[in-house]
């Protein structure tokens, strides 16, 4: 299976964990990003993710490569969903294996932070009474230009 996935179906998280498992790796760290039912005080109904597909795939590949270069990891797999996402569904999943746990934790954190900054994917939030494109990474308020 491909270790970099941009897909509209449910992410097969167990398969990604197995994909990075190797005999020398004593640690596998994972991160799952899930759809929250609230944002900035609004009751969220669902999200729609849009991607610039070919570039998004390339940037995910680059992030995986950079994680391998920066951290002592054995392997990394990243999956990101596109299309409509319901509450509590995972929109992104990262699995990293390493000999010892610090590298896997660090690479996992690095990968999700870079994904939020660099991958051309946008989410539109549908809430009670409206819809809005979310601009910029993170869970806090971001002003333009940040």
């Amino acid at each position: 299976m491909s270790k970099i996935q941009l897909i509209s179906d449910t992410i097969d998280e167990a398969a990604l964990v197995e994909a990075v498992r190797t005999p020398v790796a004593g640690a596998i760290a994972t991160f799952a990003g899930a759809v929250r039912d609230n944002n900035k005080g609004r009751a969220v109904l669902y999200l729609e993710y849009e991607a610039y597909d070919p570039m998004a795939h390339k940037v995910l590949e680059r992030i995986a490569k950079e994680a391998r270069e920066r951290f002592e990891i054995e392997d990394i797999a990243i999956a990101h969903r596109t299309g409509r996402m319901e509450i509590s569904e995972d929109s992104v999943f990262i699995a990293v294996s390493s000999v010892h746990r610090p590298a896997a934790f660090d690479a996992c954190r690095y990968a999700i932070d870079e994904i939020k900054r660099e991958v051309p994917i946008w989410k539109k939030e549908y809430f009670e009474g409206g819809e809005v494109w979310i601009e910029g990474p993170g869970d806090c308020e971001h002003s333009h230009g940040e």
Binding site: G33, Y49, A51, Y52, P54, M55, A56, K58, H80, S91, V92, I112, I115, K116, R117, E118, V119, P120, I121, W122, K123, W133, I134, E135, G136, P137, H142, H144
Partner: peptide, 28 residues
């Protein structure tokens, strides 16, 4: 983005380039 890579402001563009306007991203 020019040819699927973020471009610096002084990069020259050509008519065959694949060009995209990338608003602030919000994946993850």
């Amino acid at each position: 983005a020019v040819n699927q890579e973020f471009a610096l402001s002084d990069l020259q563009v050509h008519d065959a380039d694949e060009i995209a306007l990338i608003p602030p991203v919000s994946g993850g």
